[in-house]
C-alpha cells in the first residue's frame, strides 16, 4: 500500500489495537520509515492535507544527510 509521506508502494499494516477493540491499525513504510495510526488527524495521514514541507515524495533516500558517517573498518 501507498505511504502517506513518500507516496511509494512500500507501506503495510503492522499492528491492530491489542485489546481486540479494532479501534485502529498502525502502518509503517519500510522505505522512508514513516509510521501512522488510522485514527490520526487528516493533516497527519492524508497526503492531500499534509504540509508539503514534511513530505518525502520524489526524494531519493541516498540524498538524505547522515550525521554519523560510517567509519573505515580497522584491521
Amino acid at each position: 500500500m501507498k505511504c502517506v509521506r513518500c507516496l511509494t508502494d512500500n507501506a503495510a499494516k503492522v499492528a491492530e489495537a491489542p485489546d481486540g477493540s479494532k479501534a485502529w491499525e498502525v502502518y509503517t513504510c519500510n522505505r522512508c520509515n514513516f509510521v501512522w495510526r488510522s485514527t490520526e488527524e487528516p493533516e497527519v495521514i492524508d497526503p492531500e492535507k499534509r504540509d508539503p514541507w514534511f513530505q518525502l515524495a520524489g526524494v531519493e533516500i541516498e540524498s538524505i544527510p547522515v550525521f554519523s558517517p560510517v567509519p573505515p573498518l580497522k584491521k
Binding site: R5, T28, C32, N33, F34, V35, W36, R37, E40, E41, E43, V44, D51, F54
Partner: peptide
C-alpha cells in the same frame, strides 16, 4: 503515541 503532529512516527 505521536508526540508532535509532524514527527515521523511514535
Amino acid at each position: 503515541f505521536r508526540v508532535n503532529k509532524y514527527d515521523a512516527g511514535f
